[in-house]
């Protein structure tokens, strides 16, 4: 291959940078305008200020929504891990007729538009008498989070050398000892990764929550409501904070999984 940069390479590079710009432009805009002193997002910016962050922290509805979101994310993620990890192990260990079917069903909420899952669960909960609110939201979130926890853990399990389990049995380990001493340490990073991803997905979720929340608000639902009623710059501030937090979480989980490798 020639060392000289050819014309096509330059074109590809320009296109690639343009795409990156397109992907980042809106994010950069939000971050920048969270420091904009005017409440109108005009160009050029009128000056720098931190007041929207102050306003944001005094917006009680927003803070309540944020704590609600964290609460839901933690509970739903815990449930998804507690149900998803042992079941992934069970499916990995066992051969049974409905295995392939189960693997497909569990990811349905991830594949299908959230609105269908949302109204399905809404109709069902209505039928059995569970009203919209925090419980409904947690049930909904756990359902779609299972669709991300299960496949991640299952994939990791299938990458393990099957013989290490037999080796543990061979050395006297019972099923439970083998799970805790051999399997769990080897899927630990996958569990952490799945949990972190679940938390960010849950905090970000709208389509399912939209139908299940009732008067209970989560952060994105609250922001959605605020944007519907005209423009409020503290949204930029809260978005910037979420952005920083979620990128940090992703970088951490990426680091953990790379340490493993």
């Amino acid at each position: 291959m020639s060392k000289k940069k050819s014309g096509s390479t330059i074109i590809v590079a320009i296109l690639a940078v343009a795409v990156l710009l397109f992907l980042y432009l809106p994010i950069i805009v939000v971050v920048l305008y969270s420091f904009n002193s005017s409440s109108i997002s005009s160009f050029p910016m009128s000056g720098l200020t931190l007041k929207w962050y102050v306003v944001m922290f005094h917006n009680e509805a927003l803070i309540t929504a944020l704590t609600n979101s964290i609460e839901v994310a933690v509970i739903a993620t815990t449930l998804a891990i507690v149900i998803g990890v042992p079941s992934a192990y069970g499916v990995y260990k066992l051969k049974f007729r409905w295995k392939k079917f189960l693997e497909k069903v569990v990811i349905i909420p991830m594949m299908l538009p959230g609105i269908i899952t949302g109204i399905s669960i809404l109709s069902f909960l209505q039928m059995v008498g569970i009203i919209q609110g925090v419980l409904a939201v947690i049930l909904g979130h756990t359902t779609f989070l299972l669709g991300t926890v299960f496949p991640q853990i299952y994939t990791r399990l299938r990458q393990l050398d099957r013989n290490i389990e037999e080796a543990s049995t061979d050395l006297g380990g019972t099923g439970i000892q083998t799970f805790f001493y051999v399997i769990l340490p080897n899927i630990k990073t996958a569990i952490i990764g799945a949990a972190l991803l679940s938390v960010t997905l849950s905090i970000d979720e709208i389509p399912v929550t939209f139908f299940l929340n009732g008067v209970f608000t989560t952060l994105p639902i609250q922001i959605y409501g605020m944007t519907r009623n005209g423009f409020t710059p503290e949204i930029n501030a809260i978005c910037t904070i979420i952005l920083v937090a979620s990128v940090a979480v992703i970088l951490i989980s990426n680091k953990i999984s790379r340490e493993e490798a």
Binding site: I27, V30, I206, I223, L243, S246, V247, I250
Partner: peptide, 10 residues
């Protein structure tokens, strides 16, 4: 990883 609502609203 940037929140859906943030990207739509931006």
């Amino acid at each position: 990883w940037v929140s859906y609502i943030m990207r739509a609203y931006s």
